[in-house]
């Protein structure tokens, strides 16, 4: 990252980051002073009053009432200052401006999904216009997750069956790391996402084309979804068997029990939408369903599987690019988002 952070903190990339940082540095500085003071006196007394002989007698020390009072009163004042400062910054970080642009976020094991007011969905990549307040309305479909962007100093848990919110305004264009900070299982440490802050024009264009996916050839769409929709967590493409069967050699492989007896387009489509319909022998039925993938997305995955099995040619790409294949929602409709269905 080109942006410069400090020794302690990442770069201040949101408009509210400096408030949190200021309090952080205040507490550090006061703490260092107190720590040095305590250590100094501790070492000084341990040295100055070291035992000369085992016949040393205890010396009467009169209790100093004012000293004791001072070290009750001064720490109490300090903690109240810190509290009020933290309270102010907490309120400012918690209440979004009225004109904030709202984006819905869904955390699920182990990826982040974003849904925009016009229906565009995106996995792993959160595009936002720079310099404008953004409010994220978050929920989860399975267990607790937490949306953390270190450079924005923004964090909140995503809870199943509830909405929680965070807001931020990005100061400059760039890509910012998002991490999950509520333990959620095996791939908790790999549940990454990225905030892409772009200028208004680029953002509008991105939104209009449904996140750029409308223009992607099907097989490339499938390849991108393989990563972002989380298929790679369980399915490899190189023949190595994982939690789920590998896709290498999958196309038209024998699948007794399916409609045509082989793994064809319908088999793959069913397996994505209703995974427990066909469970491959030797594997457990633990694949979650992916109802949010559009028909085009699924066609893309089928295309990708065909490609890695050597059954996808340029002619297929050309045929797929015909408008009849594109079933994405009209990108410029202003339909308001429905509430995220609880899983």
């Amino acid at each position: 990252m080109e942006r410069e952070g400090s020794f302690w903190l990442p770069p201040q990339s949101s408009t509210t980051a400096h408030e949190i940082d200021a309090l952080f540095y205040f507490i550090i500085i006061v703490s260092v002073i107190i720590q040095i003071g305590v250590t100094y006196y501790m070492v000084k007394y341990a040295w100055k009053y070291r035992r000369r002989s085992h016949a040393d007698r205890p010396v009467d020390v009169h209790p100093n009432k004012w000293l004791e009072i001072s070290w009750v009163v001064i720490p109490s004042l300090l903690v109240f200052v810190v509290f009020f400062w933290g309270f102010k910054a907490f309120v400012s970080a918690g209440i979004a401006p009225d004109n904030a642009y709202q984006i819905h976020v869904t955390g699920k094991k182990w990826l982040w999904e974003f849904e925009y007011p016009n229906g565009t969905t995106s996995v792993e990549d959160l595009y936002v216009p720079v310099g404008e307040p953004i409010e994220l309305i978050m929920t989860s479909t399975d267990v607790l997750h937490s949306f953390f962007v270190p450079e924005f100093r923004v964090k909140h848990d995503a809870i199943p069956n509830r909405y929680t919110t965070v807001w931020f305004e990005v100061k400059e264009e760039g890509t910012y790391q998002v991490l999950c900070t509520e333990y959620c299982g095996t791939a908790h440490s790999e549940m990454y996402a990225y905030v892409h802050a772009v200028d208004r024009g680029t953002f509008n264009e991105w939104l209009r084309t449904g996140g750029g996916n409308d223009n992607l050839p099907l097989n490339e769409l499938g390849a991108s979804l393989y990563d972002k929709a989380g298929c790679q967590t369980c399915h490899s493409v190189d023949g190595v068997s994982g939690t789920g069967p590998t896709w290498q050699g999958l196309w038209q492989a024998a699948r007794p029990g399916s409609e045509e007896g082989v793994a064809d387009a319908n088999y793959i489509r069913t397996s994505i939408v209703n995974p427990n319909a066909y469970i491959t022998e030797g594997y457990e039925g633990i694949m979650p369903a992916y109802p949010n993938l559009t028909d085009r997305d699924i066609n893309g995955l089928i295309a990708y599987i065909r490609e890695i099995n050597g059954d996808w040619t340029a002619a297929d790409s050309a045929a797929a690019a015909a408008p009849a294949d594109s079933l994405a929602a009209p990108a410029d409709s202003l339909a308001t988002p429905d509430a995220e269905p609880a899983e």
């Binding site: 918690g94 209440i95 919110t165």
Partner: peptide, 17 residues
């Protein structure tokens, strides 16, 4: 306290709607 989004669980919201 800060906004109305966290106030009601989603299934209750959908029921209300």
């Amino acid at each position: 306290t800060f906004n109305e989004w966290p106030d009601t669980p989603i299934d209750e919201r959908e029921l209300q709607e």
